[in-house]
């Protein structure tokens, strides 16, 4: 994106000054929201091709979000968490498992290695996990309710206290 802006400054169009200021402000603050704002939703095939080129994708793999989601022309990338990516591939940015100029997912914040991986394949299938969980908890509950009727304690009557009626020994007076 920065190179695009630089090209625009050099070609000297009407937004040249504004873009030049944008580049310097971006260098100072590292962000400038309007530059990251996606373009309008592409409606014609030409617009689609232009948007695909803008995000470094081919026309075949470019797929925008539905228009009512408000993401504009931002591409809908596959939901692959960083944990599901190949850890041995020599990425340009190994911390994020990302290559230079690779398009960023719209929800990239949650797909980091420290957060969530929607494409994760669990080591133990989910159905098996549920079976074990419900089996153990349900089995314990079933045992508990079955044994409700078989309660017993120590063979003693209640504790005898002086204020609580007359009590007797088993010896004669």
């Amino acid at each position: 994106m920065a190179s695009n802006l630089l090209k625009k400054v050099v070609s000297g169009n009407s937004h040249g000054i504004r873009n030049a200021v944008g580049i310097f402000m971006n260098a100072a603050r590292n962000h400038w929201n309007y530059q990251y704002k996606p373009g309008p939703y592409p409606k014609t095939p030409e617009e689609r091709a232009r948007a695909a080129q803008k995000y470094g994708l081919t026309v075949e793999e470019y797929q925008p979000y539905p228009e009512d989601m408000g993401y504009g022309d931002y591409p809908k990338l596959p939901d692959i968490g960083a944990d599901s990516k190949d850890p041995h591939y020599p990425y340009d940015c190994p911390e994020l498992k990302r290559n230079f100029n690779e398009p960023v997912h719209a929800r990239a914040e949650i797909f980091g290695e420290d957060r969530y991986d929607p494409s994760m394949r669990p080591r133990i299938p989910l159905a098996q996990q549920w079976t074990w969980f419900l089996g153990v908890v349900g089995g314990s509950l079933a045992l508990y309710f079955y044994l409700e009727d078989y309660k017993f304690g120590r063979p003693v009557t209640c504790k005898q206290y002086p204020g609580n009626g007359t009590h007797y020994l088993f010896t004669p007076k």
Binding site: Y150, K151, F152, G153, R154, P155, V156, T157, C158, K159, Q160, P162, T166, H167, Y168, L169, F170, T171, P172, K173
Partner: peptide
Amino acid sequence: YGARNVDLYMDDEPTFNPQTGFSFNRKER
């Protein structure tokens, strides 16, 4: 457990007259 058949459990109150079945007068505590 052996007293379940007469519905008697731990810490129940005795229900019979304390003198029932004794030939002598029981000593009071």
